[in-house]
Each structure stands twice: as structure tokens, then as C-alpha cells.
Design a protein around this nucleic acid. Structure first.
Lengths: 243, 243
DNA sequence: TTGGCATGAATTGCATGCAGAGCACCAAAA
DNA sequence: TTTTGGTGCTCTGCATGCAATTCATGCCAA
């Protein structure tokens, strides 16, 4: 036996950099949520993959406890399926689930746009205008890459402008799954032109503080996006066939 | 030293009754979520109360691990506030949060009603009619007690009839906090008459499969309820003064 | 060959140990 | 008397150990 009492856990660095550094550095379970979510959204952990606690904890360099907590939280988000006494799996995203997902997002964004029309402030409107201008510039230049990040920022900003925490949280919770659908629908160029124009109309409705129109336009826009993604999901399996 | 290797954990009963009993008996963390949620909603654990892991685990007769997991999940629901390295607290429910909460519920139920108008089946419609009849019977008899349970069943059934899992989950997640507001607003009789009539109108719109009207009526109904609760919350603090 | 059961490996679920963060209280200095 | 530094306690966060459950494999019997 070893009478020497040494620390059992792997030596954690004393975390002096807590506030000294830049990041607020939350707990390990929180970091685990983010890293696992990124891996799932990126497809590195493909749908249906078994998420074995010991493997994940080894891969992330942490113990099983925070991994378990992270998996439970990701299950709430719908990214992971928990099965009693079995390894959780990365949730499958079937076509009908994508339909429901975009219906739900459209519903939330419609309500958010209606509220935002009455509550959005000058600074937020200005930021929206700038994002829209950026998006149009990239569009004119034929530069597709920044579109998706800008698109997400615009939608998030509109929801934030509604100043309603539960709606915003529900929206965020659905975002990761929507992103998975976006990444899987390879042909994303098709709706680019339409989408930019729709965004312009939505911005105009918000500037006019026309709640009903803003809500309807945004809900339709999300619906169109969902339908386009759905078509993109159905297609690629049948071999694009072209070079 | 004790060479005898006896089980460390407290002896768990071998759970033969797993399927033999009545309940499907999920994990302890799941039961902990439900019990804690019930305690918070009932006000037994009042807003602002510190939730010390060791106390809860002792009170529930389980170890800290499932308690910790339960607290994280309740935090996602907004019932509990997590603070790094400090005891979680039961979340306060301020007036503006109640306003946002009912805005969000109204948004979700409006969308659900619109979808349900096109998707609700005969069995669900029949069940809605029966619930409405029950509610009217209790109303006619002046029997307030069953109103709240029936009310919740009706709303839940409408949302379920929309056949949209993300919307339903978002709705469920908001329900506990709304229930807290309901319990705190003591004067609930005020809106009883109106509420029953509004439910009748909503049912009629669903039967007519008028999506826009069903959505608008339901959203207005939820908005009225929220406003009434808000008024009820503002009042009681000022001493009811009566016996 | 095939069906049924036993055996065992893999894995979850829960309990518990240990280090560090945060807070309260007290003492000493200004 | 007020403020500052110290000291100890409490509690969280993470790591790890152990039993129960599940799935796969193989053996035996029909």
C-alpha cells in the first residue's frame, strides 16, 4: 500500500488565469457541451454514432462526470438521444423532423419579428442595415462563404430585438439542429438571390415598424429556407451526377 | 484496515419491480427533476431559496450526482439559477419575466393552433369537445377546483394536435414557470367566465378549421390570462386586508 | 442446423472522495 | 470606530470506484 496521500485527480492547473486571461472559462461540463455540439453539427460525430462516455471523456481529456452532464444537456437540445442503460446516440434528423424544425423556427421568428417591430432600437436597426449591406456586397461580388454567418447574425439579432428571453432561448435551442440540416443540404446556392431579397424586405418592414408584415415575411422566408433545405436533403443522395 | 469488500453505496433494492410494478421507473436523476420541479412550482421551495446539493440529496434519499444533473436540467427550464461555485437558487419570477413568458406562450400556442386547425383529427376534436363540456359543467356548477387541470389539458391537447415536436417541447418547458405565476396570483376567479367563453370560441374555430382565427383567439386568450395573472401578482403583496 | 440459456465483457448509473473557490467571522492596524 | 488581512468552514466541481444492466458469444440440447 502507498501511505503517501497524493491527489487522485489528474493535476489541474491552479487556474490563476481565471479572470486574468480573456475567457470567463466556465466549468468543464459547459466546455464539453460546446465542443460536443460543434462536433455533432460539423458531422464529425455523424448521426447515429454511439457516444460512449469513456471514449468521450478520454477524447476531451476530462472525466466521465462532466461528459455525462453535457450529454444530458445536449439531449434537451435534441442533438443526442438518451436511452436507458445504453450508450446515447447522435440524433438522426429525418425529413419530417426537419419540416417540424423549420415550422417551429418560423413560428418563433414570426412572433419575434412582430415584437421587434415595436421594440427594436436605433442602434439595432443600424446594425441590421449594416449587416444587410454587407450581405448585399458579398452577394454582388459572388462571394458565398460569408453568407451563412451573416444570415445567422441577422436572424439572431432580430430575435434579440424582440426582448423576450424565453423566445430567444427557444430559438437558440433549435439553431444547432437547423445548422445540421443546412450543412447537409449541399446545394445552398440556389436560394441565395431570393434570400437576400427577402432579407431586404424584412428589414424594410422592421424600419416601417410594420409588425404584421415583418412577421409574415420572416416566417415565409424561414419556411422557404426549410423547403429548400428539404429539397437539398432529398437530392444529394441521388448522385449530383454533374462535375 | 478492513479487508472485507462490502458495497460502498447504500444498498439499492434489486429493482425486480422494474417492469413488475406500475411505473416505468426512470433513473434517479429523472425522478429528482420531477420532484424538485413539483416542490418549486408548489412554492415549497420558494423563489430565491438556496439549493444545497447535500441537503437535497439527503432530502431525496439519493446521492449528489443525480441531484446535480437534475439541477442542470431545471436550470435549462428556467426554474433554477446556476452560479459558478455557489449554491444554485430557485429562480425569481419578476413581473417583466411573467410578461415575456406569456408573450412566448402566446406565440407558441398561436402557431400551434394554426397548425392544429389543419391537422387535428376527429378523435382529438372529440376529446376537446368533451373537455370543453366538462369545463362548462363545472363552470355552471360554480365548481372552480377542476378548472385549472382541465384548462391545462385543453391547451396541451391543442399544442399536441399541431404535431410538431419542437413546438410541443418548447411549450412544455415554459409550462412550469407559468404554473408558478398561476399559483401566486391568488385571485383566479376573476377571469373564469371570460376564459370559458374564450375556450368555446377557440374550439369553434378549430372545428371550422379556421387557422388564422384559431391562432388569433388562442394567442389573445393566453395574453389575457397573462395580463390577469400579472394584475393578480401586483395586488396580493399589498395585504389583501380581508379575512 | 437451430433454439434456448448461460456466461462474460462492455457500459451505464450512482455513490463517494478530494481539492479549491467563496464567504463569514475575527483580529489587528489606521 | 472603520478598514484590511487572515483563518476556517462550507459547498461546488471533478474524478473515480462499484454494482446492475445489456448485448454478444458460445454451449448444449432437440
Amino acid at each position: 500500500m502507498d501511505p503517501v496521500r497524493r491527489p487522485r485527480g489528474r493535476p489541474r492547473k491552479p487556474v490563476l488565469l481565471e479572470s486574468a486571461g480573456l475567457g470567463p472559462r466556465r466549468g468543464l461540463h459547459d466546455q464539453a457541451v460546446e465542443r460536443l455540439r460543434a462536433l455533432i453539427v460539423a458531422g464529425t460525430l455523424p448521426a447515429g454514432a454511439a457516444l460512449v462516455e469513456t471514449e468521450l471523456s478520454a477524447a476531451l481529456g476530462i472525466s466521465r462526470t462532466p461528459v455525462r452532464e453535457a450529454l444530458k444537456l445536449l439531449a434537451v437540445e435534441g442533438l443526442v438521444e438518451l436511452r436507458p442503460n445504453r450508450s446515447p446516440r447522435v440524433a438522426e434528423l429525418r425529413a419530417d423532423a426537419v419540416t417540424e424544425l423549420f415550422e417551429a423556427i418560423a413560428a418563433i421568428e414570426r412572433a419575434a419579428a412582430e415584437l421587434a417591430a415595436g421594440r427594436i432600437g436605433p442602434a439595432e436597426l443600424e446594425r441590421l442595415r449594416r449587416l444587410q449591406a454587407e450581405m448585399e456586397a458579398h452577394h454582388a461580388a459572388g462571394d458565398l462563404a460569408p453568407y451563412f454567418a451573416l444570415n445567422q447574425q441577422i436572424h439572431a439579432l432580430i430575435v434579440a430585438s424582440a426582448r423576450n428571453a424565453p423566445l430567444r432561448e427557444a430559438h437558440e435551442a433549435l439553431h444547432a439542429r437547423a445548422e445540421i440540416a443546412r450543412r447537409r443540404a449541399l446545394d445552398r446556392r440556389g436560394r441565395w438571390d431570393e434570400s437576400v431579397a427577402e432579407h431586404r424586405a424584412i428589414l424594410a418592414a422592421l424600419e416601417a415598424r410594420d409588425a404584421e408584415r415583418a412577421g409574415r415575411l420572416l416566417a415565409d422566408h424561414v419556411g422557404h429556407t426549410g423547403a429548400a433545405l428539404l429539397a437539398g436533403l432529398a437530392g444529394p443522395d441521388t448522385k449530383p451526377d454533374a462535375a
